[in-house]
Amino acid sequence: MSTNTLSENNRKVTVSRSDKTFAGVSHVLLVIWSLLVVGPLLWTLMTSFKTTREITASSTALPSALLTDPETGSFSLSYLFTNYISAWTSDNFGRYFFNTFIVVTSAMLLVMLLGAMCAYVLARYQFKGSQLIYYLMLAGLTFPIFLAIVPLYQVLKSLPLPWAPNGVFLGTFEGLILTYVAFALPFTVFFLYAFFRTLPNEIAEAAQVDGAGHWTTFFRIMLPMAKPGLASIGIFNFLGLWNQLLLPLALNTKEEQYVLAQGVFNFANKAKYEVNFGSLFAAVIITIVPVLIVYMIFQRQLQGSVSQGTMK
C-alpha cells in the first residue's frame, strides 16, 4: 500500500486562527513533555561531573570541585572526567562495556536469524500444530523470568560445550547468549510473524515457479523483503538485551564477565560500603549513551519500518 500518507513536511499555507491556537497548545504540551524527558537525563549527566560530597550536599548546584585544580584553586578541565575514569577503570565498567557489547550483539544477530526463520515458517506454511507452536511462543511472553532461573541453571549446567573451561554452557558467554536468544525469541517471532504475513505472495511464488527451493526462497527473496521488519526488531532486541538484568544476575556470576546493567545494579547495592555516587552516575551515563547512540543512528529506520509493518 503506497497511498498518500500523512507527511511531516511543512509548506507555506495561510494559517487560520484556530490552527494557530491548536498549534500553540500542542507546542506547549510537547515542550513540557520534552522537558520532563530531557530534564532528568541532563540532571544525571550534570551529576556525573560532581563529587560524591557535592551530590549529597545539593541536587541543584552545578559541578565545581571537578572543575577546579585542587592545588591552585583555579579553573581547570583536567579533573572533569575523574568519575568516568574511576568508573571505567577501577570500577571495571570498561570491561563490563565490552562484555555487554559482545553478548548483546551476538545474541541479537542470532535471535534475529532464528526468529525470522521460525516466524517465516509459522506465517507462511500451513501444517498441523503451527497454531499451537505460535501460541506456545506467545505464552512465553507472559512468564516471569526469575521463576525459571534455577531450572535454567541446571539446564545450562548439563548442556555440554566442549571448549568451555567446565565443559558446559554454564558460566560462559555462549551460555548467556543462548539464554538471551531463547528469551528474546517469543517477541521476535511474534513481531516477525505479523510482518511475514503482510508480505505479498506473488514474488515468492514466482521464484518457486522458477525452481527456487525453500532455502533459496527464504534467503534470496523473503529475508531481503523483510529487512525493514528485521531492522526494527533488531533495535528492540538490542535495547531489550542491553537492559537485561535478571538473567545475568543469576547466570553470569563471575565478576569479570559482568554486563553493564548488572554492574550498575551491584554497584548501587553495595551496603555497608562507601558508595561513590559520582562513579555511579558516570556508570549510568556509560550504560545509557551507547543505546542512545544506536537509537539515534537507527531511529529513522525504526520509524519507517514500524509504519510499514502496520500496513495491512
Binding site: Y153, Q154, L170, L249, A250, L251
Partner: peptide, 9 residues
C-alpha cells in the same frame, strides 16, 4: 541469587 543455583546444581 548468585549461589542458590550452584547449591541446587
Amino acid at each position: 541469587t548468585e549461589l542458590q543455583p550452584r547449591f541446587a546444581g
